[in-house]
Amino acid sequence: MELYSNPKNVGSLDEKDENVGTSVVGAPSCGDVIKLQIKVDEEGKISDAKFKTFGCGAAIASSALITDWVQGKTLSEAKKIKNQDVAEYLSLPPVKAHCSVLAEEAIEKAIENYLSKKGEETCKK
């Protein structure tokens, strides 16, 4: 509840920054959209994470929690975060499980996006 009414990490990062990975998951017509961004430092750790969410309180709280948890983690550590952990931490009822699934998906996609950006660059070099 606190995470919903006073969420940390709301906002966005510069999408064009090569160290930023961005993901948008969900669809407005389904009632949930999460836009999530991570910034990765030289050591491969997540130095910042921001989100914007359209969805119910559970979706907002899940995004807030997950962007908090990934801070300071390496990408592989961040990937290990499971939606069950989020749902458990927030005591989400079963019907709200998909809201946390969406947050997990958002992190994964943001990491993928970051890696593909990096990948392209190495090729160019």
Binding site: Y4, S5, F54, G55, C56, G57, A59, I60
Partner: peptide, 11 residues
């Protein structure tokens, strides 16, 4: 537009 109904109620 732009905000989900239940989240308004929770707010």
């Amino acid at each position: 537009e732009g905000v989900e109904g239940e989240s308004i109620m929770l707010g």
